[in-house]
């Protein structure tokens, strides 16, 4: 599986207890499984099914995707800055798709 390009946006610094915005974007075709190809046969489904965000190993947000999510899935959500550490996002999907991206956050 070719490495997917993932972009995540997390503020590098936050005050303790502050609600921070997190944005994530990953390159993926999100083939629906409902489209015919040139010979009229359906192109098999190939989507990201699950997106998980953990904060120092604790799950804080999870999304389940269906084919109606656009290509290159974008999700924006919030979390409370509790402590300094690492925020990790993981995407898993059809055909063994797996991608992960981490970013450090400093909480003062």
């Amino acid at each position: 599986m070719a490495a997917a390009r993932a972009l995540i946006n997390v503020p590098p610094k936050a005050r303790r207890g502050e609600v921070i915005g997190i944005k994530s974007l990953i390159s993926h075709e999100m083939e629906t499984g409902f489209r015919p190809n040139a010979t009229g046969q359906l192109i098999p489904r190939n989507i990201i099914k699950e997106f998980v965000c953990t904060y120092n190993g604790v799950e804080v947000f999870r999304a389940e995707f269906f084919p109606a999510v656009s290509a290159n899935p974008f999700v924006s959500f919030t979390t409370r800055a509790t402590e300094s550490g690492t925020i990790t996002m993981t995407w898993t999907g059809d055909n063994g798709f797996h991608a992960s991206e981490s970013v450090a956050i400093t909480v003062e």
């Binding site: 609600v19 947000f61 269906f66 109606a68 999510v69 974008f74 999700v75 924006s76 959500f77 919030t78």
Partner: peptide, 21 residues
């Protein structure tokens, strides 16, 4: 079905954006 988002008290707010077909 389009999507399911699971969140909890740690989210701080329930405010989500995405893009759909």
């Amino acid at each position: 079905n389009v999507a399911v988002f699971q969140l909890g008290p740690r989210a701080g707010t329930a405010d989500i954006q995405t893009r759909m077909r």
